[in-house]
């Protein structure tokens, strides 16, 4: 069963030039944790997320492979994290966003989809291969909602054939 019905085809997006401060306001206002970033032509360029902003607050030595595997010893020192956040807020979204993102398409198997969401994080962008344009996103919430939707329809007596593609919302 592909996951087509779980796709959100009109996701909220951000522009790469938007300041991080505004982007943080945007995700707070819409109660989301991340949003895809697209350029003027609608081409996908990255994902902006709160967790990415949080990550940028850590010292580089703790982020790199084979780097520090604990920072417990910095206890007692207040390393000016708030000031660091203030600096990050002045930067454009394109400097903070995750560019290295796993993209999927509507033909991906449902189980594989769940596995990818857990492995690479939510949401995952759905990108048109030739143009690179963002056609939708899929998130942990949209997957669960879609499955609940199916259950509801089964309860109403509809026959759901698991192998068939379901119509897009």
């Amino acid at each position: 069963m592909p996951f087509e019905t779980a796709i959100i085809t009109d996701p909220l997006t951000l522009s790469p030039e938007t300041k991080v401060a505004a982007a943080l306001e945007f995700v707070k206002e819409h109660r989301i944790r991340a949003a895809p970033v697209v350029d003027e032509q609608g081409v996908f360029v990255g994902i902006f997320s709160i967790s990415r902003v949080l990550k940028k607050l850590l010292p580089t030595a703790a982020l790199v492979d084979e780097g520090l595997n604990g920072l417990a010893f910095t206890v007692g020192a207040a390393p000016g994290i708030a000031k660091k956040l203030d600096k990050i807020k002045q930067k454009p979204v394109k400097e903070i966003m995750t560019e290295d993102v796993y993209a999927v398409d509507g033909e991906t198997a449902f189980w594989e989809m769940i596995r990818l969401l857990l492995k690479y994080g939510s949401p995952l962008p759905i990108i048109e291969k030739e143009s690179g344009k963002l056609t939708g996103i899929i998130s942990i919430q949209s997957v669960v909602h879609d499955l609940e939707d199916i259950l509801e329809r089964m309860a109403e007596g509809q026959t759901i054939i698991e192998t068939s593609k379901l119509t897009k919302k």
Binding site: A72, F73, V75, A77
Partner: peptide, 10 residues
């Protein structure tokens, strides 16, 4: 700040 570090936590 650095002097506050607790090496034993490492």
């Amino acid at each position: 700040q650095l002097v506050q570090y607790d090496p034993y936590e490492a």
